[in-house]
Design a protein around this nucleic acid. Structure first.
Lengths: 349, 349
DNA sequence: CTGAAAGCGCTTACAG
DNA sequence: CTGAAAGCGCTTACAG
């Protein structure tokens, strides 16, 4: 491996000048820069990252900690995030150090990774209200970026969607179509995103004058079987007047709802309208549903590059307040939503 | 962050002595070592990896590259490996740098990660015959450990199961139970593990004098639907005389076979015996099958710690030949295997 | 048993 | 525009 010293010896220049030439410092003369560049190319010089990191205090590595569910599985979205993240970070020459959290205490893994002293920051996901990881990292002054927001107003960099708007848009569309009995099958309510969705939902139905009874607002870890079971209970009339529309926290839940509708002989959208939030996972596409699913869409993959950039910029000194992005999910109307069925125009009793 | 200098100042010792005390050099006096240790603990000293790396040439970080399937999904086993690996590496103070491979050329990602110059080695999985990653890393002199073996005889560290024995054990059990028409639903034949399983299978059935026709040996990426479709074709008699026993490459495939048997009104094990190889993923347990599945069992999780240790020892200078472990999967007879049915005692026509 | 010194490869004030 | 020097935090011959 050629070093700066090799180049400086080759050219009779000082190591400092060679370094400056290669790093694009403006004070270097054009001729010197050209000579240095040529020699560097000829000798196959690659900067030694380790040495650079020792002197600059940056490691060029950030941490990501995967949190496992109780059953030791990860959610479907895990790999999607990881793929996009490593690619986006690589673009800016940053590496991703991974750890898997199997502890009860959410901060111990972060603590352990910090001990090595080789990380410039962290990427967090799945925030909860009053997230203990946030408090911990802030108290230590460790930069991080969050996918989503733990609370409506936060003081750290983040990228995420407006989850209240997700619900408002869904309810708004359904109300426009005449629906008055709208149910919600939400994600796990411990997470901030689900709390926001649910609050947005309650606000929206209240505004339309269509308050939904508690029995028709569910929240659980998203799964096909959750969607199936809940929808079966709601649509069979066991809980009282059936909903004519269901807002689903994910396409996976929507798949279960569709199966339940089918089993009950209900057709979508003639008897039941369905709208879901769609992370746009490539394996599981809303367009391929039968009928194609109306969604609020926000590809998980789109989050990766902004997350990487926000974090890297923050590490480089960028203000947290300037590195906050909340985007609006796109409402895509397909064929799973339609006008309220004839017999279903009454509001909840 | 406390440094060696802080400790040496605190104690009035030289930095060199502190370093030696902490690194277990024998010449340090017991008393000095104790004082240094105490101060280090008190100040929360953690060695700076970057600095160590610069001087020793080691970083304490190893790379793992996840290869995505064509549909951008990872196989089920990915997270299982990652979890065990990060835990096992952490035990020896090594971090895992992750990358995701989306290229056609299998070595470009390795090349790119190496350019950074911060990795001590790699953990590879899913070897194929004549694996290009092996050739590449060996030509560069980069240490690595393989989960499995690309060929029967290799010159690199590995940990894996004897895949020929997996098939021999399965066929042996079935032959003992009187089965003469034994089919195989194998994994993706591009991978070495599947090649070994298939060769082992052919050898075993030949030895028992029960050669299996080609139409009853299948190989594909393991999935429930693959098991279902193939089993349906074999068991419906569309391919000729039906098998009385099927050896499955994975429990996922076995699940599909069971569904096919059920659809055809065949009962397991009265009409059909079933044995599968079981990676023992926690989400998907062979004991919970109905009936509980007979398997050759080798928990994926068990591979993680040996893989980590082999790699770390190899990086530290351990000979590749001494860091090769091939274990035998455990044959666990449960209730999906039974005596050959009355009408099924004839060999393949 | 301990210390002083050199050095890993780089960056960056400080001079000139 | 360029150079000499200090320093990032550690390890390790070399002395004593």
């Amino acid at each position: 491996m050629a070093t700066l010293k090799d180049i400086s010896a080759e050219l009779g220049l000082s190591v400092a000048t060679v370094s400056r030439a290669l790093n694009g410092f403006p004070e270097v003369s054009a001729r010197t820069r050209a000579r240095v560049q040529e020699a560097a190319d000829r000798l196959g010089y690659k900067p030694n990252r380790i040495a650079q990191r020792l002197v600059t205090g940056r490691s060029g590595m950030v941490g990501f900690i995967a949190k496992l569910n109780a059953d030791m599985t990860a959610d479907q979205t895990f790999l999607e995030i990881l793929t996009g993240l490593t690619a986006a970070l690589a673009e800016r020459d940053v590496d991703l150090v991974l750890s898997v959290d199997q502890h009860d205490d959410p901060v111990t893994v972060y603590e352990r990774m910090l001990e090595r002293g080789i990380l410039d920051g962290f990427i967090l996901n799945a925030p909860v209200p009053n997230d203990p990881r946030v408090a911990f990292l802030q108290s230590r002054g460790i930069p991080f970026v969050m996918h989503g927001q733990s609370e409506p107003e936060v003081h750290y960099p983040f990228y995420g969607i407006d989850n209240r708007a997700v619900s408002r848009d869904a309810v708004g569309l359904l109300a426009t179509l005449g629906h008055r009995r709208i149910a919600l099958l939400n994600g796990d309510i411990r997470f901030s995103f689900a709390i926001d969705r649910e609050e947005g939902f309650r606000e929206a139905v209240a505004q339309e004058g269509l308050n939904t009874p508690e029995a028709f607002i569910g929240h659980e870890t998203p799964s096909e079987s959750y969607g199936y079971t809940e929808a079966l209970a709601m649509l069979s009339g066991r809980r009282g007047a059936q909903p004519t529309a269901i807002v689903c926290g994910s396409t996976l839940i929507a798949a279960g709802v569709m199966r339940a509708a089918k089993d009950l002989g209900l057709s979508v959208p003639a008897d039941l309208s369905l709208i879901a939030h769609d992370d746009a996972l490539p394996q599981f596409r809303a367009v391929n549903f039968d009928p194609p699913l109306t969604v609020t869409r926000s590809p998980l993959r789109d989050a990766c590059s902004p997350l990487a950039n926000h974090l890297i910029d923050h590490i480089a000194g960028g203000e947290a307040d300037t590195l906050q992005t909340r985007i609006r999910a796109e409402l895509i109307v397909r064929e799973s939503t339609g006008p309220v069925p004839k017999g279903g125009t009454d509001p909840w009793p």
